[in-house]
């Protein structure tokens, strides 16, 4: 067994374990952290396929941005675990049956008979100086420019939708306008009052 194979199985085993723990662990924070682990090992697998750009993007975008946001949300929400698991045992027989069937079918279809090395040969090795990033950029901006632009539009829709659904201008909310604050004149804050001095001398007796 070559070193690459050992590394592959190492990553694959961790990936499977982490993915399994994501759905079985009781604590949502732990689940999110296991998902981070799963992403890391998946990035490792991609790195072995010479897909450096994808691997690094996976870590940067998913681990760095998405999962951290996710952790924030999970920590801020008070998730009631017992309610989440309500009815688990009622659904288990049917769901377990369907899941087992599906897993067996997938095992048969995706086995080496249909996707073995003889049918889907391993890709040839890349020459030295091959840049995955450059290849990807070339494809993305030529052949796949249409879906790429559409993805940009989808992101724009996501922004519009998120702002529409969350921005709420309350009628009686109090907020400060710094521009107005800076322009303030002394006269608007301090009121000079002319009044006669009020000596206590005349009040006594």
């Amino acid at each position: 067994m070559s070193f690459a194979v050992v590394v592959f199985y190492f990553f694959a085993a961790i990936l499977l374990f982490a993915a399994f723990r994501v759905i079985t662990t009781r604590n949502p924070v732990h689940a999110a952290l296991y998902l981070v682990l799963a992403f890391f090992t998946a990035a490792g697998l991609w790195l072995m396929l010479d897909a450096e750009f994808l691997a690094i993007t996976l870590v940067l975008v998913y681990v760095g941005a998405v999962m951290v946001l996710f952790l924030f949300v999970v920590m801020m929400l008070d998730i009631n675990l017992d309610r989440l698991r309500d009815g688990f045992w009622d659904y288990l027989p049917l769901a377990g049956f369907v899941a087992t069937m599906l897993a067996v079918e997938m095992g048969i279809v995706l086995g080496s008979r249909n996707f073995g090395l003889s049918i889907v040969p391993a890709p040839s090795l890349h020459p030295a100086g091959y840049s995955n990033t450059k290849e990807l950029g070339g494809l993305l901006y030529t052949q796949y420019v249409y879906p790429f632009e559409l993805a940009a539009v989808v992101l724009l829709v996501a922004i519009v939708a998120a702002i529409t659904l969350t921005m709420r201008r309350r009628k009686n909310s109090k907020y400060q306008n710094p521009a107005e604050q800076v322009k303030i004149q002394r006269g608007e804050r301090v009121r000079m009052v002319e009044m006669a001095s009020d000596q206590p001398s005349s009040t006594k007796s």
């Binding site: 989808v154 829709v157 996501a158 939708a161 659904l165």
Partner: peptide, 9 residues
């Protein structure tokens, strides 16, 4: 996805 995302919102 473009259609569905807009519809969810």
């Amino acid at each position: 996805e473009l259609m569905s995302l807009s519809l969810y919102a």
